[in-house]
């Protein structure tokens, strides 16, 4: 079976600094894969490379078998490769219902319509509302985004991504800034998403990683140190060293 997303030999340098060194991996459909590594390992950069926000110097990225390496970000999104942001990147003065409806309309090609009232797009609006319900933020969806609690904004990040009907979802620290006791709940919601959806997430909290990931990639200094099941990763001496800060960048 074709992998949902695969990377082969991805390279990227900023000057002399290698931010991605020969990174290769495959994500089978439906996998919950965690990307871990110390600060500055290049985790967010890898997401930027995969989504096309940064162009790699070399290598190949395939989405469901199709080569998307040189494709602009918004076209990758329309093909099902979607990300969220570590730092909330939302529409402050729109309410969540408008924001998610906007994303649904863009996907359905209804956003070019400037002569119909928005309320005539009932299907799109209902779909948006259902997404908000599934993420448990429907009760605040008539309030402006900037008035929402931080945790609710994190969920809206995911809601916006889901509205594009992704095949592969890249979550950049979805629980960043959420109190530890609430991040478990947030991941329960994420874990409840469709099993056809492939999820690749960056997370620092090891408890959460071991609970929700079926596979883990460890990135250090722009290179994949190893990959394996949570049990394998937990037992690996090198990972412990990295997390204790003994391994350097070279």
């Amino acid at each position: 079976m074709t992998a949902a997303l695969s990377a082969k030999g991805i390279n990227k340098r900023f000057g002399s600094l290698v931010v991605a060194g020969d990174i290769s991996f495959e994500l089978p459909v439906g996998e919950r894969c965690a990307l871990i590594g110390p600060n500055g390992a290049g985790k967010t950069t890898l997401i930027n490379l995969l989504t096309g926000m940064i162009e790699p110097d070399g290598g190949e990225i395939r989405l469901g078998g199709e080569d998307v390496t040189r494709m602009p970000p918004q076209q990758r999104v329309r093909r099902g490769l979607v990300r969220t942001f570590q730092i909330n990147s939302l529409f402050p003065r729109l309410n969540p219902l408008e924001a998610v409806t906007l994303a649904v309309c863009e996907r359905r090609g209804e956003s070019r319509d400037f002569l119909s009232r928005l309320a005539t797009k009932r299907e799109a609006i209902e779909e948006a509302h259902d997404i908000l319900k599934s993420l448990r933020i429907a009760h605040v969806c008539y309030r402006e985004t900037r008035e929402l609690a931080y945790g609710q904004q994190r969920l809206l990040e995911i809601a916006l991504a889901l509205a594009t009907k992704p095949k592969v979802l890249l979550l950049d620290e979805p629980a960043a800034g959420v109190p530890k006791e609430d991040s478990g709940e947030l991941f329960t919601v994420i874990d409840g998403l469709s099993r056809e959806l492939t999820i690749f997430f960056i997370e620092h909290d090891m408890d959460v990683v071991f609970r929700f990931a079926s596979r883990i990639l460890v990135l250090v200094g722009g290179r994949l140190l190893l990959e394996g099941t949570p049990a394998e990763i937990a037992a690996d001496e090198r990972v412990r060293e990295v997390y204790l800060g003994k391994a350097g960048h070279g």
Binding site: Q74, V77, S89, L90, F91, R93, L102, E106, R112, L160
Partner: peptide, 28 residues
Amino acid sequence: RMVNSPFGLSLQGIRENSTRMLAIGARN
């Protein structure tokens, strides 16, 4: 009518956060 249309909503999305619009596949 335009500002109350789906198109108008997308315009406001561009005003509020054009980077995020690209990340949801919008035709900015």
